[in-house]
Design a protein around this nucleic acid. Sequence first.
DNA 1: TCCGCGACATACCTATCGGTATGTCTTTGC
DNA 2: GCAAAGACATACCGATAGGTATGTCGCGGA
Lengths: 215, 215
Amino acid sequence: MEPARPTSRTDDTSESRQEIIRAAAEVFMEFGYAASTIDAVADRLGATKGRIYHYYRSKAELYFDVQIAAMERLLAEIEPLARAEGSPAEKLRRMGLRHTEILLIDSATQKVAVQGLEKNLLAAKAARHVKTLRQIVRMRDEYEQLFAEVIDQGIRAGVFIDLPPRLATKPFFGTLNWVTVWFSPRKLQRPEDLTAIATTLTDYALRGILKEPLP
Amino acid sequence: MEPARPTSRTDDTSESRQEIIRAAAEVFMEFGYAASTIDAVADRLGATKGRIYHYYRSKAELYFDVQIAAMERLLAEIEPLARAEGSPAEKLRRMGLRHTEILLIDSATQKVAVQGLEKNLLAAKAARHVKTLRQIVRMRDEYEQLFAEVIDQGIRAGVFIDLPPRLATKPFFGTLNWVTVWFSPRKLQRPEDLTAIATTLTDYALRGILKEPLP
DNA sequence: TCCGCGACATACCTATCGGTATGTCTTTGC
DNA sequence: GCAAAGACATACCGATAGGTATGTCGCGGA
């Protein structure tokens, strides 16, 4: 009768929704938000519009759900690492490494989230989605904060370069996130290959932020 | 009668075209390719479609011209620096610094070019624009090559980290290019502020690529 | 067994937007 | 000074795609 669970999605993993999110992520990644059609997402599912509009009320809502799914995974995986024991440099390394691995493994969903495509477009015409938009921004901010805090610890300890933490996160994330731009998932990349790329990038980012090089 | 100068644009600076390119860059940057309308570009010019279609035969052609304009500026400014005298580290620093400054100064046009938005979209439906697309890819490649060569010199000299040059350019550009994602041109940024940001990012990228830190 | 609802498919409506055809005014060459 | 072309504006067409209204089928409960 009505779309199930309008905006709530906490622990709602109705399986069918997950499939839709995954298909939508691939299409959004390939064409961008505006150029992606609901029909294209449905095609990829071997279904029709009806299935999607049964769960989502609009294209924008679907797009937001992809973003939220991506951020939830990042937060769930990185937060424990941020709260773990270890020196700032060690912690930051583990966080950056895992962060990059997730970008590579989950590349469709993450590419959409990381590059924040069409943010402005949506901000323009979606006065109705302000609330969801705020939620996403808050999640992004919270995520960046995890890194900013560890970086702050490193700066205080005198082992990181002297910059405002929030500014220091920019080139750090830039080194890592740029992978979503140049990396294209080839025919069966082995997990080791992905880890190798992630390691190279993380080491690079760490050298940029450390005062003295790694031993 | 017919659109002036279909695809040639060498030294064609008909002033009106330049205005169109600038307006188009702003709109494309704000909304992405697919979500941008020709009418929106015309509005920003205080004109109508007619003016744009007098110079361009399609939206895609206009989009490509923005990309080409951006790459031409980068190539024109960076190539002399790449051919100049100096140690690899010094040269790479000057190149990265100027590169980032251009991204910040010319942010609308460069953001469109750097993020390569909708590349896949165009590749999909634009079998007719293959030639122009190849030209843009070639320019990008040529540009990356300028950096790859200097990096290669540094690697051979033993002062840069040991990586394939083409791979080493990735995190280097990532650090710098990511600025197009997080930087938003506020109300009158002073040139010094932009240079300060560019310097911070370039230093970061250089620490990542150097074996030993700067003296 | 039958009712009802969830989970879709089908058919359809409609606004938007790329592109075109044509008109108008201005400039330039002779 | 006048014809032709350049530089646009105006009016219009047609396809695409977001959204809706409605139908169908299967399953679980009373």
